[in-house]
Simulated assay, not measured.
Amino acid sequence: MLSDADAAALYDLLNPWDPEQCPGDAFYDELVMAAGSVLDVGCGTGAMLHLARERGHPGRLVGLDPDRAALARARRRADIEWVEGTAAAAWWDAAFDLATMTSHAFQCLVTDAELGASLAAVHTALRSGGRFAFETRHPQARAWEGWNPSKASDIADPAGRALRVWHETESVIGDVVTFTGTTAAADGTVLRVDRTSLRFLDVALLDAFLVDAGFAIEARYGTWDGGPVTGTSGEIITIARRR
């Protein structure tokens, strides 16, 4: 079996934070390095903030996440604040210039109540004029249709053990997709199964939630190089500003 700590270490191997190679990472890296203070909501193992500090970010950096095992890896750097908790439970008041939610973490906010409470808390945590940057998969691209065992990734864990990792869609109910992530040994023995639900908001509903929480849309992109949202966009990339 794989422990939560094993899963967190494997996540870093499967999803390295690398602005030199990944346009999405570069998009956030530029925003973070230009901001005096940053709250990373759903920070996971902390890779984005780790790199920012390594590159000389001099200001306050705070990572917030409910996953204790991921935060244990994040805390390998002690010059960043790490807080266990959800977006909705954030308590800061006018403390940050920038808030981020990377790696489609925004989609983990599934219910209307969770979305509303989370956006309200992020809004409160930002200074007047502060910005909130995040991305969500555009539902028109139907990304979940590609989540199946035929798209498995083969990887060696930190101990050198060969593993296979894949995702498989279980259900699509309205705009909520539930899927499993499976990690297996090379011989096919299943070591861990995680189940996740994600919400796929369209642009109109997303913006209604943002406006209701007190945000104005500052910028909207469909591609990481700044292209507009179109009928074929796979992403809805948003920079919202606290009014």
Rank of each mutant, 00 (worst) to 15 (best):
A186K: 10
E168I: 13
T111E: 09
R77C: 05
R192K: 12
T100R: 07
A34C: 08
S233K: 02
G46F: 14
L201R: 09
R164N: 10
D79W: 01
E81W: 02
G214I: 00
F215C: 06
R220I: 06
V177Y: 05
E30Q: 14
V83P: 03
V62K: 04
D225W: 03
R164V: 15
T102R: 09
V165M: 12
R199A: 03
A208Q: 11
A120W: 00
W224T: 09
E235C: 00
A133C: 06
G214A: 12
L210E: 01
W166F: 15
V193N: 06
V176E: 14
D212F: 02
G188L: 05
T102I: 10
D194E: 13
L210N: 07
T136L: 10
L98Y: 07
F132Q: 06
V190Q: 09
P58E: 15
R142S: 09
V172H: 12
T230V: 04
A162L: 15
R60F: 02
E168G: 13
A120C: 03
L98P: 09
R77T: 07
P149A: 15
H50F: 10
D112L: 02
L64S: 03
E114D: 14
D6A: 14
V176H: 02
W82A: 05
L61M: 02
V176L: 09
A156P: 09
A99N: 07
L64H: 04
R161S: 14
W91S: 14
V83F: 01
R161K: 13
Q21F: 00
E20P: 00
P58C: 11
Q107D: 07
G146I: 13
F179V: 09
V83C: 07
G231H: 05
L206S: 02
Q107Y: 04
L98T: 10
I173E: 15
G56T: 12
G214P: 06
T189L: 05
A184V: 08
G174M: 11
W224G: 04
R77Q: 08
F132R: 05
R243L: 06
P228I: 06
V193L: 03
V62A: 06
V32F: 09
R77N: 05
E135N: 09
G36S: 11
L2T: 10
L115W: 02
G44H: 13
S153Y: 13
T232Y: 04
T223H: 07
F106Y: 11
Q140K: 13
D29Y: 08
A5K: 10
R76N: 08
R55M: 12
T100H: 11
V122T: 02
R220C: 07
T100L: 11
R142N: 06
G46P: 14
R199M: 01
A52S: 15
V38M: 11
F215Q: 05
A78H: 06
T45K: 11
D93V: 15
T182M: 04
A78G: 11
L14S: 02
W166D: 09
L210D: 05
F200Q: 09
